[in-house]
Each structure stands twice: as C-alpha cells, then as structure tokens.
Design a protein around this nucleic acid. Sequence first.
DNA 1: CGCCATATTGAAACTAGTCAACCGGAGTGG
DNA 2: CCACTCCGGTTGACTAGTTTCAATATGGCG
Lengths: 236, 236
Amino acid sequence: MTAPQTFSNAKFDAGWSLRFEAGAAAPAGGRIVSHRARAMIVDEGDTSNAVYEIVEGGVMVFKLLPDGRRQIIEVLGVGDVFGLASTAVSDVSAEALTPVRLAMFDRRAVDLDAALRDRLFQRLRAQMCALHDHALLLGRKSARERVATFIMRLVAGRGGVDCSGPRRTNQPGRDDRARVGLAMTRQEIADYLGLTIETVSRAFSALRRDGTIAYDRQDEVQIGNVCGLCRLTGSH
Amino acid sequence: MTAPQTFSNAKFDAGWSLRFEAGAAAPAGGRIVSHRARAMIVDEGDTSNAVYEIVEGGVMVFKLLPDGRRQIIEVLGVGDVFGLASTAVSDVSAEALTPVRLAMFDRRAVDLDAALRDRLFQRLRAQMCALHDHALLLGRKSARERVATFIMRLVAGRGGVDCSGPRRTNQPGRDDRARVGLAMTRQEIADYLGLTIETVSRAFSALRRDGTIAYDRQDEVQIGNVCGLCRLTGSH
DNA sequence: CGCCATATTGAAACTAGTCAACCGGAGTGG
DNA sequence: CCACTCCGGTTGACTAGTTTCAATATGGCG
C-alpha cells in the first residue's frame, strides 16, 4: 500500500488539504502512541478519556450497525483530531488507515490547557465542515458522483472554492493531470461512500473505460483532466 | 404547524434532547435576533463573521447542489450553535424551522470570551456526534429505518444508550406510548433523510398501516409502542 | 365555496444491491 | 520451481428498493 502524497479531505469546498506525512511544525505535546495500519485505536462504546491528535499517518473513524453494516464517517490526516465525543463514552470507532503516530491527551488536560483547547476547537470546526460535505454526498449524490468526488478530494488544492484551476501553460487545456494514491481498499471506499464494493468497482471501471482516469495498480489513479473529473462530482 | 414539546436529535445514541422552547437557564449574551418560520438566516457562500446560538426555536442547516438537490445536514434546537465554519465564508445555509430567537456573536468575540468559547466547543462536540449518527443513517439505512429513526429522535429520552426503557407499570407491556410533533414538512423530512418526498410519504403510510404509528394531522404522530418502533430503526 | 399547498397513491423506470463466477497477484508449501 | 491457496478486485445476471412521473386526495385559508 503506497502512502499517497496528500489526501485533500476536510471541507472539500474550502479545499483544505489533509496530509499523511508528519508536518514540519512540531506537534502537540501529549503522549505519543503508534499503531500499525488497520490497528484498532478506539472502539465504539469504549469508556476512555483520551483525545487524539494525528501527528503522522491517517485514521478512519466509523460506526457499525448491529447487523454489521459499517459507515466510515471521516478519513483523517495530520492535524485532525478524534475522541472528542461530549461524553466519556466514544460514539465511534477509530482504526489506523496507515501506520500512524498520535498525540494522546487526557480530557482533563483539554480543560486546563487553553492553547490545546483552541487548537482542537479550530480543527473541530474544520472537520465539521468536512462532515457537512460528506452528508451532502451520502444523502444526495449518485454512485458515479460519489466516486468522482472521492478521487477529486485526493487531488491537493483542486476542486475547492479556492481551486487553483488548471495550471496556465503555453498549451491551453494541457497539463491538467494528476496522480493520486488511494490508500484505502475498495471495501473501505465503499463503506466511506455509502455504497457496496461492487458498485465502487464498477464506477472505477466506468471512469477508466471512458478515459477519465487510468490505473495499473488499483490503488494509484492517474487523472488526465482534473477539471473534467471535477465536473462529474455534481458539485460544480 | 404545532411546535413539538421536545425534539431529541443531537447524538441519537447518547439520547440528548433538543428543545424548541426557551430554556429556563438565562441564555448567552450576544445580540438577540429573531426570524419567522422558514426565514433564511445564512446563505451558503455568505461572508459573515457571525456565530449563532439558538435561544428559542429550531433551525435547519442545509447545503445545495448546483442542480437544486438539497441536503438538510442538521436540525438544531435550543442551545445548538451554527455559523462556526473555520473560514469567514459559510459552508452551509441556515433557515428557521420555527419562529426562532438567536443570540448572535461576532467571531472575534469568541476569541476573547473564554466562557463563550467553552460553551460553543462543548456544544460543537455534541453536534459532531449527531452528525456521525446522521452519516450512518444516510450511508447505510433503508428508507423505513430512516423514517423510524427520525420519529424515534422526536421521542424525548428514548432510543439512546441511556434509554429509560418503557416505564415500568402494573401492566407489563403497556404504557409505552408517545406523541410527537413533526414540525417539518414531508419535503423537509425527505431532504433531511436523503430520500424523496414520495418515499417518505410511503414509509409513513406503511408504518401507519402496520399499526406502528397513528396520526390524524400529518404533523403529529402517536406511537403505540415506542420499543417496537425503536426496533425498526436498525440501530437496536 | 373553491383554490393552492402539501401529501398520498399508483405504475413504470432505473439505480444500486445481491449473488455468483472469475481474475490475478502475493504468499506458501510440496 | 511450480502448483495451490487466499484475498482483493472485477464482471455478469438478476433482484430489490427507491426514484420518477402522473394522477388523485386533503387541508388550510381567502
């Protein structure tokens, strides 16, 4: 599984970028804990007073129904936070998407440390916006739009309100390509987009058939025309 | 449109209650503004530095796709907050669901007033949990489950992890009834649940046909057996 | 009384889900 | 070294659930 360069997620329309590599800025403080990819970090219903801030890597936050249906609620990267339910009982589960390093804080520390609380607050607001976008996707977009949106979110700096647009070059219409790593399996993508694995697979195949995307490895996609893909998201 | 007594929404599984009537506790501070039902409060894309806290009434927060598809993201009541996007540009629109009174704060005031910020932070965490639940509903539940979940959320104190259960009485199995006001039109419910108006209508009709609910006015539902309805939500 | 909104119901079309077969690469063991 | 297996992904055929389109109620209000 190749770790992608960037993973633009939070608040799609604002075009924020979500990264998996450790940031230059020194992180948090707090106790650093590490997990391997696909390790369980928090289980829904756990009583825990821990709040987590991602230092490096990616995390999937999800919920399960009693019969096993799973919805991945958010996919998080460096700087994102989780474990901030308003009670001591976690309302969600969290699993490492990649090998991950986390800064772990006690809930009480959040009450005491104003700088930490401000950072969490600010990040929570950003993640809230991403959640809004995702609700729109889950409630109103077609399978094709969902997959197009998912891929677009992996293209750093594109597709948001502040989208840089295709780079201006001497050849108009050219040089609007990108290559993104997926990091997630088809099943995970399906659980994130509220679809089945077959529907996701078919959507990828259809996009490849009509030339919108290309790939050899199924976890690394090339986009010939980013603006063209963006038009398939339903958002633009 | 009869204002319901209570509207249990935020973090379904935690069973928090959302009310439309003004609370006993003195509110916020901030400038009080009022809107009539269905009045537009914020428009997606607006540049505004206002943060709102609901003093009385209900608010619908939603997003639109360019072709007019609408997703109602959250339905908010007293104490809930909105306008907390992480940039000055609002990522969502907000409309009054009932006549509503709002406490309006300047974003800068939030940075200065620690008590206010803590209150907003705490509430944001609660609303984030509600959003998690709603993503699960939108991504993974059937139409029937969505409507059952919607109705259950209107039953104060029931359906959460801390559900009080049917009241214990001398007649076991009795006295597990409830009556709830809907406050929303079928179209609004549909846009909230990620369905069409016809599907919502059919789900209500089916629940009425099989005796799970009863109603004369379409905006006021009687539940004969709350636990029975709860079993149809998919969550239990 | 009659109009306009909203809601309900029916029938047909379509999207996504289900079930099942198959493919292909990675790892295992004879 | 190669057959075998396992697992994730793809594809096909069929089904189910939801949407779409259209007609018909119902209810509030002038």
